[in-house]
Structures are given as C-alpha cells and as structure tokens.
Design a protein around this nucleic acid. Structure first.
Length: 889
RNA sequence: AGGCGGGUAGCUCAGUCGGCAGAGCGCCACGCUUACACCGUGGAUGUCACAGGUUCAAGUCCUGUUCCGCCUACCA
C-alpha cells in the first residue's frame, strides 16, 4: 500500500544525509566473515591518508559502489573493504612542511618524536577523504576499515619481508639508484617521471696522457666529469683503433683514466667517445663493473658536490655545472656545444630533478615473482579488463628490473633488519630481537630505512583480511572477486599485488581487474592545480547531487576511453534525476488508492492486462537482462545508457502517456486497478535496477512507496524472467507507435498546432495489423490527439488529406483548413528522390548474381522484403503526388 | 626507438557477428496538454582521417600513409 507523497523537487543534500545515516544505523554495508551466501569482495584502492577526493577517486569509487551494491542485491555476502594508505613520502612531506612553519626540521625533533607528530597529524587531519567517500554514497564495510600502518598490517609487512629475505628474494647492495635530492631518499625506477627537456650536448677535449693528441667526449652533464673513471669507445669503431688501452688526463681533475672499449657505446652518437661516471649513471655503473673500474662518488644527498669534487665541493650540481663549463672554456678544453633534446627524470612526488647516485639500498629480486604473475594472467586465473592492457602488463613483467624498496625517510614500515654492534651479524626477523643470536650481544641497531609505501600496498588484498593469521575473513574473501583501479597504477600496484599475492598465498589476489580511464577536463586536458582546471567532486555533489554526479561519471566511462568531465554534463544528468523524480511523483499520485493485487499472481498473468501493460512489462524484462549483463561485463556506460533510454523514452514518454486515460478513468474505470498494479511493479523494478547507480534517489522514492519497507538495498536485484517475454505485445506496440508517430509527423510538417484535434483514417490490408490498430484506437486517439479515427482494409485517400506510409499500410490526416499544396508536394518529391536512391541500390543488389549466390539466405530474404516495401511505398507516394498535382491544377 | 589507443553529425562520443550509419547535448519549428519548461512533439545535419586490398557486401577485416593522445625504454 502506497502511503508516501513526493515534494515538488528532489532535494539531494537533505536526502543524501538522511539515507546515508539510515544505512549506517542499519548496518546495511556489513558483510559477514562466515555466511551461507556466496562471497563477493572488492578491496578499495586505499587513498592516501593525506588525500582529498578528486575526480579520479570519484570515478573509481562510484564504479566500485555500483558493482558492490549490485552484487549485494543479488544476494552475495558482499564485502567492500575500505582503508587508507600511509603514503610515506607524501605524508612525511606534509608534516615536514608544518614543522618548517615552526622553523623546525624533523632532525630537530628526532625520529621518535617526529613519528609521534605524524600520528598526531593523522588523527587530527588525516583521512578526511573517508568522509568524502561517504558523501559519494560509498557503501564500504566501514567496521573493517584498515590503515597500512596498523599493527596488523605492519605485522604482515614484516612477515613478508622475512620470508622474501629467507628465500633469497631480498638483498642489500650498492647500486646506482634514483635519488631525489629534495625528498632525500632513493625512489624506485617507476617513481621517476620523465619530461622532455631541451639542453646541450657539450664537446670536451680530453688530452691523451702520452701527449700525442686528444679525444672529444660529448656529454649533457659536464659537471659529472669530476667522477669520471674512464672514457669508452665502441670496439668496432675504426676511428679509435689503437686508442684502446691508452690513457687520458681528466681535465680540471688531472686524474689519469683509461680508454676502454665497450659495446655499450654507440659509434653514431655524439663524438663516439663516452665518459664513464660509474657513480652517477646506471649504464656507466654496469660498464665499470664489467671493466673493474673504480667508482668516485662526487655528489652528496642534497645534490651538492662532495669532498671528491675538489675545488667544487659544496656547490649545487647546477652551480657546479656552470663553473665547470667556465673553467673548461678558460683552460681551452671546451670545444663547443650543440642543442640537444633529452628526457629529464623528476621525482613523482615533488618534481625535483632526479640524481642517479650510487648508494646502499635494499632490493627485491622480482624476476621469479614476475614469472608467476605473468602466468596467472596468461592462464586466465586473473582477467584484465579491458584486455588490451594485458599486453602492457606482460611487456612490463617481461622486462622488469629489481625493485628498490628502501627509503631514507622516517614515516613508514621500518626495515626489520638489525645489525649487531659487536659481531657485525645481520639479523632479519619479524619480531624485534632482544639480542644477537650469534654472539648474544644486546647491542643491536635497526636498519634506519623504511620500506617503499607500495610494499605494504602490495599486500593489501590479504593483509586487510587479517593475514598472517588464517582468519575466517581471509578464507571467505580471498582471492577477492574484483579490483577496480586506474590504469596508471597497473605497474605500481596491480602487478605487485599479483606478485605478492601469488608468493604469499599461492593464489591470485583477485579474479577480475577492471582498469578504468582517467578523468580529464572538457577539453581533454589532464586536471591539475597548475592548469587551474580542477573540478572538485564535492562541489559537484553540492551543486547537482551525488546521484547525478555518479551517473555522469558512469555514463561517460567507455572502456579504454578517458572521461571528459564538465559541469554542463553533470547538469544534464541532473535533469534525468528530475525526470525520474517527477515520474515517481506522478506514479505515487495515481497509486494512492491502489487496493493491491486481487490475487498473489495477478500481476503476472498477461491475459488480464492491457496492451501497454504487457508491452512495458516485456520491455522492462528485456532491459533487466541488458543492464545485468552490462554491469557484469563492466560496460558501465552502456548500462547507464540502457537505463536512461528505457526510463525516459519508453517508461515516461510512452507508457505513462498511454496509461493516463485509463488512470483518469476516462475509458474504463474497471481497468484502473490492473494498470496500477503494473505501474507499481514497473516503478519498483526501475528503482531496483537503478539503485546501484543512484543510491540516494532510489532509496528516497522506495521509502515513499511504502514507508514500512526495509531499505531498497535489502531487496533483490531484478532478474530476467523468460515467462515475461511477450513478442506479441512488442510487435503490436511497435505498430501502434509507428501510427502515432506518423500522425505527429504530419502534424509537425503541416504545422498544425498540438491542440487541434484531427480526423484520421488508416488503411491496413492485413487483418492482424488492422485489428491491432483498431483495438488500440483509444490510445491512438489520445496520444495523437484525434477527433475521430476510422480504420479499414482498403480505404481510399480522402480528398484534402495528407498521407503517410507506414509498414502495414497508409495513414490519412484530413486537412480541414486549406492545405499548403506546395509544401506537401515538395516534401513528397524529396522523399521520392530518396526512395529512388534506395530502390536503385536495392535493385542492384538483387540483380547481382554473386550476391544471390553467396550471401546469407536470410540477408537475401530481408533484401527482397525491403525491395517489395520500397516499391510499394514508391507507388503510393507517386499516387499521392499525382493527386496533389491534380488538385493544384 | 618500440608499444598501445584514437580520428564517425556543430560538440562529446556509441557502433560486440562484415548485411539499412546511431545517441546525448546543441540547433530549428510548434506547444506552459492537470508528473516534469530541469518539459513535450516534430525536424535538419555524415567524403565514417587518407590510399589501396580482401569480399556478393567494409565504419567494421588486411596493408600502407597521416594527424592526435598515452605508455615503456632511453644514446653520453
């Protein structure tokens, strides 16, 4: 029984707040560790604790919420695991900036005090993004919320580290790594962003030590010459035959260094002679180890020249470059420069130029892990959607390099390694050791470094479920069902979760990975602070409501395509929200006195129903199947499109208009209750279909339909029912809609005002079609606004009428006022010309022997039918034209 | 350098099996018809980037060209 009433306009803000609180109070988002229901699980890509909701988050989480609400309604024990990432460098930067405002550095506080300050900051300001997610409607299982620095997750991190170490998959050593002089830490190769930069290639003369001449070295980074320990040529390069084995004097430094031959050098670039600076370049480092060259480190952690740089000590790298160039020029070593485009590495956090530097770091040996991760996708244990990303995934894992996991910062998981101060023993342990197992000394010091934030993120799918304990949740929800994330973190996160999941659990972390695109501005530009083109999701929610906003994101998310977002588009879908609201309001007004179905299955039997009811039920059933399939295939934009098309154009434009006379009791008051039954059921089903996309609006209307009901979330997602397929009703309604459209078309073309009632006759030779139209005369009269309708098998075209051709026959509209003959004739002539083109085309096909011999018989039949239809249409049109011409003369 | 994606109506884009080229927005005309003007009805609009090929038939498959975007790797 319907009790509610809807206000004039939907008020998103009050509705959203009300229902979100209602859902939380009712614990509707909670999933069970143990349940008879089938499990379905998603782990959230944990946003940074420092984060604010941006468009990327909004899209990402809207999609997850759609899937999880859908699955929950389908009866799954659906878990959406929420949480946040401690975001090592990002968070440390934030707190350091606050300290800087007080004139302090982290070193003033000391490690312990500093970490305490970070926790304080986290408790006070961190995690506002969780509230933002709630504004969006995210139905996460908040009781399970985790943080990567939680005690439990930290235990998981240590445990995995120790296992990897014991399996020989973690090692420590001196290598050239990507160093950020501002963040003061090493970062991984992935964390370097490359930008095109224009610079110079400088040619420098290096004199031979025996005084017999010189070689010319080309470099983009002249300042690093202070650390040169050789120069190299390609062994095949004829120009330098005989030079290999000789020595050169390093200008400014006066160090004697050898000329070596290595195939790494390409003869056709620059001068063909390369300076080798092992401490500053990974390639040079490799050359140096092949040739047993010494290594001279010339840079300190700040990107300044150290004591090995002699007179340049203490200078910033770029200051030093200028000075080195000046000195080279003054001493006659600089031969010139040419403009040179190269890509420059920057820190992805702070955009400072990266300084590749040799240092002692921890690495994960990833090749064996990558092999498993590769195989799991190859054999389909995990699906990547859209599949085109598989190639990228394979390519990266096939060429993967070891992962530098140590960071020289304080905020993060400290590496669980201790060094014995007395015997030098290295202890790797999951729990803090009390003393050295070798010598018993209690003088242990823990490694100063922390782990890359992505190390803990890589464990997220199982660490959040309680691992290393074998919890019920872990058993129930791992492997998770689906991961939804942006393609930009495919390597950072997805690939690493695959590796760690397979290593630790011997099972993939998720079955499906859906990679969505980037949200850009309306011009397709990346949103960024510097461009000033950021659209704040919270502003959009305030302005248009969370539902309209979510639906917009969803509607524009075609697989593999970026989303171009603009306020205008969201506003467009706000109109859709308004349309639904009004359709619901109208329905409720007309359902208030609905006595309920006469019998339990009354609304299931087609027999007692009017044609529009049968048709809308049929269409609703089809759309249910469509939308279900589209969500299951992650075709979110298509699901949104199907719902939009059905609700607006079929339910509102046709069905609601068709039933008005019946509802108003103008035709047959007895049929009102039957129509009410269908209306109620269709509206209810629409709300359920729509709920995952528009959770707030649908709950608001749902509760208004019956305020004693439980949340719409607790109802079952609609299911396609083969018994409801009603092709007969569909065919009949199509015929009727064609007639109505034809009459409206004439009205429009002839500029007859909508209020003018028309006299119409329809001639249909075929019995079935004629009967259909004749039975539907009340609908046609109403929707086309007719005075009178005559239906016959072979009616002649009345004088002074305008005709339209429909598939089943002809429609005549009597013109009472003087007919604009010229306008009508021009229209017919234009139509005839078009028809002739189509006819010629079709006749050609049917005259083509090859077509008749080779085409699918069904296609030939269709072509023949089309041809017959065209011939008939053409004839009728020609007749009409002749008649008009006669009238004119 | 290699890889991937894209080029379809004025704009933003769908188009899954090769078989009549579509939607939304915008635009034009008419209309405040008792859910909705955040609306209704009707209408106009195409060299499917270019060239070639396969096919009875190509927006769709193949080859090449071109422009745009992205990713990966970097030769100093």
């Amino acid at each position: 029984m319907t009790t509610g009433e809807l206000g004039k306009n939907y008020e998103p803000s009050s509705s959203e707040e009300k229902w979100y609180r209602y859902w939380l109070a009712g614990d509707y988002f909670h999933s069970l560790d143990v349940s008879e229901k089938k499990p379905f699980s998603i782990v959230i890509p944990p946003p940074n604790v420092t984060g604010m909701l941006h468009m990327g988050h909004a899209l990402n989480n809207a999609l997850q919420d759609i899937v999880i609400r859908f699955k929950r309604m389908q009866g799954y024990n659906a878990l959406w695991m929420p949480g946040m990432d401690h975001a090592g460098i990002a968070t440390q930067n934030v707190v350091e900036q606050l300290l800087a405002a007080e004139g302090l550095t982290r070193h003033d506080l000391g490690r312990e005090e500093f970490i305490a300050r970070v926790w304080q900051w986290k408790d006070k300001y961190g995690g506002v993004i969780i509230n933002h997610l709630k504004r969006l409607g995210a139905s996460c299982d908040w009781a399970r919320e985790r943080f990567t620095m939680d005690e439990g997750l930290s235990r998981a991190v240590r445990e995995v580290f120790v296992r990897l170490y014991n399996d020989g998959l973690i090692y420590r050593g001196d290598y050239v790594v990507q160093w950020c002089p501002r963040c003061h830490t090493a970062i991984s190769d992935l964390e370097v962003e490359y930008q095109e930069a224009s610079g110079y290639l400088w040619n420098i003369r290096y004199p031979l030590a025996d005084g017999t001449g010189y070689v010319v070295v080309a470099t983009t980074r002249p300042e690093t010459m202070l650390g040169d320990t050789a120069v190299a040529v390609n062994p095949e390069d004829g120009r330098f035959r005989g030079l290999t084995g000789k020595q050169v004097v390093l200008p400014l430094v006066n160090r004697i260094i050898p000329i070596i031959a290595d195939s790494y050098v390409s003869a056709d670039f620059g001068s063909g002679v390369v300076k080798i600076t092992p401490a500053c370049d990974p390639n040079d480092f490799a050359v140096a180890s092949r040739h047993g060259l010494p290594l001279v480190k010339i840079m300190d952690g700040n990107g300044c020249i150290n004591e090995n740089g002699g007179q340049y000590q203490g200078q910033d790298r770029y200051v030093c470059r200028d000075n080195v160039l000046k000195d080279l020029e003054a001493q006659g070593y600089l031969l010139g420069r040419e403009p040179h485009l190269h890509s420059k590495g920057c820190c992805y956090r702070c955009k400072t130029d990266i300084e590749p530097t040799v240092s002692t770091q921890w690495f994960v040996r990833v090749a064996p892990l990558a092999k498993e991760a590769l195989a799991a996708v190859e054999n389909g244990k995990t699906r990547i959607i859209p599949a085109l990303w598989e190639a990228t995934y394979f390519d990266w894992l096939n060429n993967i390099r070891d992962w530098c996991i140590s960071r020289q910062i304080w905020w993060g998981h400290r590496i669980p390694v201790w060094y014995c101060q007395d015997c030098g023993n290295t202890i790797v342990a999951a729990t803090d050791p009390a003393d050295c197992p070798r010598c018993g000394s209690a003088h242990l010091s823990q490694d100063d470094d922390v782990l890359d934030t992505w190390f803990s993120s890589a464990l997220w799918p199982f660490s959040t479920l309680g691992w290393p304990d074998e919890t019920e949740a872990l058993k129930t929800f791992y492997p998770t069902s689906l991961l939804v994330t942006g393609f930009d973190i495919l390597f950072f996160w997805v690939a690493r979760m695959m590796m760690m999941g397979l290593y630790v659990r011997k099972e993939v972390p998720f079955r499906d990975v859906y990679l969505h695109a980037l949200v850009r501005d309306e011009n397709g530009e990346k949103m960024s602070k510097s461009r000033g083109n950021i659209i704040d999701p919270l502003d959009m929610i305030d302005k248009f409501g969370a539902d309209a906003f979510r639906f917009t994101l969803c509607a524009y998310t075609a697989q593999g395509r970026d989303v171009k977002m603009s306020e205008e588009r969201i506003e467009g879908y706000k109109h859709f929200v308004n349309k639904i609201w009004n359709a619901a309001k109208f329905s409720l007004m007309n359902l208030r006195d609905y006595p309920g179905p006469v019998s339990a299955d009354a609304d299931l039997t087609g027999d007692g129903l009017l044609l529009p009811d049968r048709w809308i039920s049929h269409r609703l059933n089809q759309v249910t199947a469509e939308v279900t399939r589209q969500i299951e295939e992650y075709r979110f934009n298509e699901a949104a499109g199907s719902l939009y098309q059905f609700i607006w154009h079929e339910f509102c434009d046709w069905y609601l208009e068709l039933i008005k006379p019946t509802l108003y009791g103008k035709v047959n008051p007895d049929q009102r209750a039957a129509v009410q039954g269908t209306l109620q059921r269709v509206l209810t089903t629409i709300l359920q279909l729509l709920h995952p996309f528009m959770p707030f609006l649908t709950e608001e209307i749902w509760q208004a339909l019956d305020e004693n009901q439980d949340s719409i979330m607790m109802s079952s997602y609609p299911v396609f029912d083969p018994d409801r397929v009603d092709e007969d009703a569909d065919a009949k309604m199509n015929l009727i809609m064609e007639v109505i459209t034809a009459i409206r078309n004439i009205r429009g073309e002839m500029e007859i005002p909508p209020s003018k009632k028309l006299l119409v006759s329809i001639s249909i030779p075929d019995d079935y079609s004629r009967q259909t139209i004749s039975d539907a005369s009340q609908y046609i009269t109403h929707l086309a606004n007719l005075e009178a309708l005559v239906v016959g098998a072979d009616l002649a075209e009345p004088k002074g009428s305008v005709s339209a051709i429909i598939s089943a026959g002809r429609v005549f509209v009597l013109m009472e006022d003087s007919l604009d003959l010229g306008r009508k004739m021009a229209k017919i002539e234009k139509e005839l010309a078009k028809l002739d083109r189509e006819l010629a085309n079709s006749a050609n096909k049917l005259a083509n022997r090859d077509f008749l011999a080779k085409a699918d018989p069904q296609v030939i039949d269709r072509e023949r039918g089309k041809n017959r239809d065209l011939v008939q249409r053409r004839q009728l049109l020609a007749e009409s034209l002749a008649r008009l011409k006669f009238m004119e003369s």
